[in-house]
Amino acid sequence: MTAPATSTPVEFAGLSREQLMVMLHQMLLIRAFEESAEQLYFQGLIHGTMHLSIGQEATAVGACAALRPEDYILSTHRGHGHCIAKGAEAGYMMAEFFGKETGYCRGRGGSMHMADVETGNLGANGIVAGGVPMAAGVGLSLKMQKLDRVIMVFFGDGAANEGAFHESLNMASIWDLPVIYFCENNQYAMSMAIGKAARIENLSERAAGYGVNGVTVDGNDVIAVYEATCTAVEHARSGGGPTLIEAKTYRWKGHSKSDKQRYRTKEEVKEWQERDPIGRLVERMQRAGLLDESGFTQLQAKVDQEIVDAIEYAKSAPEPDPATILEGVYA
């Protein structure tokens, strides 16, 4: 519509307008998914709990944009965004959220175990740093099979203080495994501020202790996240081993449904909301003439419709047959 595919300004790191539109679409879809998830919970249509990633859309999308479809990710309890960014369909995600048989995990996993193996998402995880040791295993497996693939494991600032994180990063380092350790530092491990949980300014400094590259990026700048991840992916693919990326970001909502948010101020939340990753991308694209008002409105309308369709699909999807309750424990 506005600019040809190959001529985006240098600030977009070589991403074409089409690629940027895909990324913006994913970011909007993540936010819409999360907002609808919360509404469905308040309406009593969803039970359990959930961990919303509103405000963190740029980390999921920027990081996954640097991957190929055949690359793997391991995700976290705050994993809806990663799932969408890696290519999952909102309908099957929503069906899983509703606990339905046609959901990605046949209704057995729910929000905290959302996975789409076909698009390389090996699963969200209910345990902080739960996926991190497995990432080294996946990396070892890819290296042994001489596959031209990488594994990116997402984890939070809280997980960086789990022992398993250190064991995993160290092993990936000594064997040059194709693993990207992607830390979404959203400032709080539930209520524990990262400034109280670690003495260092940047968690990426820990990379030095394992002899690997570490980099800290603005996690609310999707292009910066993309660029940093591209460098790490290239390094991993060429046999250079792992990289620790720390993306500083912020979750707008509480940790989970029980969070009264006594540990932070409304002012702080507002300050971060002014650095809205979606708003920043839209603004940049508009400034560069890559997106106009009607283009954005159309995209938002498309996203809204996708969520309506996803919810409708999920509501009408079948419940698991109780006769299948024992399935899937053993292969």
Partner: peptide, 11 residues
């Protein structure tokens, strides 16, 4: 974790 991750992806 190594065993789990490697087993998950074909080893």
């Amino acid at each position: 974790g190594l065993a789990t991750g490697a087993a998950l992806t074909g080893m």
